[in-house]
Simulated scan of single mutants.
Amino acid sequence: MKKMLIWIIMQFLYRGMKVLYHEDKRMKEEFDGWNKDKVIQLRVNHGPSITIAYAYLKGLSKVHRHPDIVITFKSIDTALMVFTGQMSVKQAYLEHRFSLKGDVFESMRFVRCVDLTETYLFPRFMTKRIFNHYEKKYKPSLWIYLKAILTL
């Protein structure tokens, strides 16, 4: 059951990021800051994974290619805590709850995009608990949810 929930959340996180790439200039600036294509994989030991490709100035898509950056959560429970807003990515990193393969500097861009996406997808009481700052929303969360649900 936990694996299925994590897989669903990963899909929604991807869709939210894809929508926000076009709807929020901060997301676009973060990804476009790479200046070249990247493939990022989020995965859970003995659990689901998602591989996302970023194409410069084009946006995001799901792929099945060798990743440049791999973020691997060490347990299903940790991934669930991060993906449901019970723990920030920063806290999980500080507690060594995931491993990172690839360039740390480049992966921080991706983490900032995850944080921004969570700002839109989570209610404010959750984001106040996991982030020490509040990002302004330029579009209503409901708009992002609807576009994410309708985006293929």
Rank of each mutant, 00 (worst) to 15 (best):
S88D: 11
N45S: 13
I52S: 14
F125E: 13
L121P: 02
L116V: 11
K74H: 10
A55V: 14
V19R: 04
Y54K: 06
N132S: 06
D32H: 00
V44S: 08
M17R: 03
E23T: 10
L121V: 01
K139M: 12
Q91P: 00
L20P: 02
G33N: 10
K28D: 04
V44A: 03
P123Y: 00
S61T: 11
F98Q: 04
E106N: 12
Q41G: 07
M87H: 03
D32I: 01
F83A: 02
F105N: 14
P48E: 07
V63Q: 03
G59S: 05
I40T: 12
P140T: 10
E135C: 05
V104N: 08
H64D: 15
V63D: 06
M108R: 14
K74A: 00
V19L: 08
K128Q: 09
Y134C: 07
D77F: 05
L121N: 00
E29S: 11
S107I: 01
L20I: 00
L57E: 14
K38Q: 15
E118Y: 15
E30L: 15
L42Y: 13
L116N: 13
T78Q: 09
R112C: 03
F122P: 00
K137H: 05
K25C: 01
K25Y: 11
P123D: 05
I69F: 10
I69L: 13
S75M: 01
I50T: 06
S99K: 10
G85Y: 11
D37C: 05
I76R: 04
G47D: 11
T72Q: 11
A55S: 15
E95S: 10
L94G: 13
Y21Q: 08
E118G: 01
E135H: 10
G33K: 02
C113A: 15
R112I: 00
Y138V: 04
G33V: 10
V89W: 08
Y120E: 04
V44T: 09
R112S: 10
D103H: 05
D37M: 08
S75N: 03
I71Q: 05
I50W: 06
K28V: 06
L94R: 12
F131W: 06
K58M: 09
P123M: 01
Y56T: 13
D32P: 00
N132P: 04
A79V: 10
E106I: 04
A55C: 07
E106G: 12
L142N: 09
E118F: 15
K139D: 07
Q91W: 01
K62D: 03
R43I: 07
F131K: 05
T51M: 07
T78A: 10
M81K: 14
P48F: 09
R124H: 11
V39S: 11
K139I: 09
K137R: 11
N132Y: 02
V39E: 11
L142K: 13
Y54M: 04
L42D: 09
S75L: 02
F110E: 08
L60S: 05
H96W: 02
V70I: 15
V111M: 06
D103A: 05
K18V: 02
S141F: 06
D68V: 02
W34R: 09
T51S: 13
L100I: 09
F98I: 00
L100T: 05
G47I: 12
F105T: 14
F98T: 01
K25G: 07
F105A: 15
I71W: 00
N45Q: 14
V63F: 03
H64V: 13
E23S: 14
Y138A: 01
